[in-house]
Amino acid sequence: MSRRRPAPTLLWGGALAGLLVATALAAPLLAPYDPAEQLDPPAGLYRPPGTVLAAVHLAGGGWRLADRVRRTAEGLEIERLGQAETLPADQVSNLTARGVADRRVFLLGSDRFGRDLASRVLYGTRVSLAVGLLAVALALTLGVAVGSAAAIGGRLADAVLMRGVDALMAFPWLFLMMALSAFLHPGPGLIVVILGATGWMAISRLTRAEILSLQNREFILAARGLGLSPFAILWRHLLPNAYTPAAIRATLQIADMILLEAALSFLGLGLQPPIPSWGNMISEGQDVLLQSWWVATFPGAALALTVIAFNLLADGLQDTFNPRAATLPRL
C-alpha cells in the first residue's frame, strides 16, 4: 500500500480515541474515588459540581460528610444536612489540629446515592469501550464469514444469504433488542452478543462485494490454477486484499454499538446498575433532570465525545484509504 497523507479527521479521531482507550485502561488511577462508594448518602446525595465536603471518619467506622467543620477544644462541631452537631474528639478518627484530614470533592457533582459522578463517568469509559469493541469484533467475524460464504459458496448460497441480509437490514432491531433484553436480563456478555449478532450485515455485504471484485483477477486465477483449495485462496489471497472496506465499516460501527448499548441501558433494558454504564447514568439523571441537571448531562457529554472520536476516526480512515466509497449515515 502506497504512503498516503492521513486526513486531519483521522489524526483528530485517532488521538481522541487513543486518549479514551488510555482513560479506560487507567480509570482506577484517574478516578478520584471508587465509583460505587457511598459515604454518608443522606448528606452526599445530589451535590452540584464543584462541591467540597469535609469527610469525617467516625471512630466506630463509617463517615459523615459535613458542609463545614470547626475544631473546638472538646472535639468537632460539624454542620451537616443544615444542622449543627458536636462530635467529641474520641469519636473522630481523622481529627487534625484544624479540622479533619479527609475531604470529598465532587468535581462533577454526585448522584442519588452520593456517589462521585466524575469517578462513575471515568469508569463508564471502560464499560462503553469494552462493549463497543467486543460487539464490533463479533460483528466483524460474523460479517466476514457470511460475506465470504456468499461470495465463494456458489449462486444458491449467495442468493439465499444476501436475501437474508437484505431482510435483516430492514428490521427495526431496537424493538426486538428491547424485548430480548427485557426478558433475558442480560449481563455485559449477552449485550455484546445481542449487539454483535444484529450488526454484521453491512460488513458482510462489503466483504462479499470486495471478494467478488477480486475473483477474476490474475493472481486469484493463478492460485486457482495451482490447485489451491477455495478455502486456502480465501484465507491467503482474497481476505488479505479485501479487508479494507470491512475494517473501515467496522470502525464506523464501534460508535454505533456504543450508542446502542447506551440507548438500551438508558431504557433500563441494557446494563443494570450498579455497573457504571453511561446509558443507565443518563436514565437516572432523567428522573431528576430539572433538580440535578449534572447527573444526566456529564455522562451524556462523555458518551457524545466517545462517539465523536470513533466517528472521526472512521471518517478519517475512509477519507485516507477509501476516498471514493459512499458514506452512508446510520441509525
Partner: peptide, 25 residues
C-alpha cells in the same frame, strides 16, 4: 462536514434531555 459529523454523533436521547433542560426549564 465536521459539524455534520459532530451533530449525528450526539446521542439522540441525551440531545432530547438537553433540549428539555434548555427550552423547557
Amino acid at each position: 462536514r465536521v459539524g455534520g459529523l459532530l451533530l449525528y454523533s450526539l446521542p439522540i436521547f441525551w440531545l432530547g434531555l438537553m433540549a428539555v433542560l434548555l427550552f423547557a426549564y
